[in-house]
C-alpha cells in the first residue's frame, strides 16, 4: 500500500466505524480520564495506610520480659541494689534486691549485684537472653531506665584529661579489668583528681565490660 493508500485506508475505516461521529468514544475516554484521579487517590490512601502500618510496627515498643533480680546468697548482705546490663552497651538503673525488673527481650543481658559504692560486687557468669513476654516471678515489675555508654563520648575524654600524660590509651584499656570496676586500676588508682561523677562513669564503663567499640 502506498503512502496515500495507508493513510486513506485509515480514514475510510474510521468513517465506516462511526459514520455519524462517535460521542460514546469521547465519553469513554473522559470517564476513564476522570476516574484516574480517584484511582490515584485510592492508591495514595493505600500507600499511606501501609506507611502508617509500617510506622506503627516500627514505633511499637520493643518486646520486653520480666525477671527477678536476686544476688548470690553469699553477697546478699553487701548488695544494696541489682542492675541489669547489656554488655559493652548500656546499663539499666539499679533496682532493689529481689525486685521484678522489666527488661528488653531478645537481648543478651548480665545481672550485677551492686554495692554501696555503685560498683558491681558480682556479675553473672554468663548472659541470659529472655523471650518476649517471658516472666520470671509474680507481682509488679519495675521498669528501670536504660543508660547508654559510649567510650568515645563518655570515657575517652576523662582518660585523655587525667591519664594520657603518663599512660597510653592502649595501656589504660588493657588494665581496665572488665566487669570488675572495684579491682580496676583505671577506677581505683587514678593519680589525678577525678571527680566522683567521672569516677562513677569510669566504673560503669568497666562494669559494662570496658568496651572501646562505639
Amino acid at each position: 500500500m502506498t503512502r496515500d493508500d495507508a493513510a486513506l485506508d485509515g480514514l475510510l475505516r474510521e468513517l465506516a466505524r462511526a459514520p455519524e461521529g462517535d460521542d460514546a468514544f469521547v465519553r469513554r475516554v473522559m470517564d476513564r480520564a476522570e476516574r484516574r484521579p480517584r484511582v490515584r487517590v485510592f492508591l495514595a490512601g493505600a500507600a499511606a495506610s501501609l506507611i502508617l502500618l509500617a510506622a506503627g510496627f516500627l514505633l511499637e515498643p520493643p518486646p520486653t520480659a520480666r525477671i527477678r533480680v536476686t544476688p548470690p546468697a553469699c553477697l546478699r548482705s553487701e548488695t544494696t541494689s541489682m542492675r541489669v546490663v547489656v554488655p559493652g552497651r548500656s546499663a539499666f538503673d539499679p533496682v532493689p534486691v529481689d525486685a521484678l525488673a522489666r527488661v528488653p527481650a531478645g537481648v543478651p543481658l548480665l545481672l550485677q549485684a551492686v554495692g554501696a559504692d555503685g560498683m558491681a560486687l558480682w556479675t553473672s557468669p554468663s548472659t541470659i537472653t529472655l523471650r518476649p513476654r517471658e516472666i520470671h516471678g509474680d507481682g509488679p515489675a519495675a521498669t528501670p531506665a536504660e543508660r547508654r555508654m559510649d567510650y568515645t563520648r563518655d570515657v575517652k575524654p576523662i582518660l585523655d584529661a587525667h591519664c594520657a600524660e603518663c599512660h597510653t590509651e592502649a595501656e589504660l584499656v588493657a588494665a581496665a579489668k572488665p566487669y570488675q570496676a572495684r579491682r580496676s586500676p583505671v577506677v581505683t588508682q587514678t593519680h589525678a583528681p577525678v571527680s566522683a561523677a567521672e569516677r562513677g562513669r569510669l566504673a560503669l564503663w568497666v562494669d559494662l565490660g570496658a568496651s572501646t567499640r562505639p
Partner: peptide
Amino acid sequence: HRRLLAYALAVVH
C-alpha cells in the same frame, strides 16, 4: 479523536 482513530486504524486494521 477521529483523526487519531484513523491513524490507528491505518496501522492495525
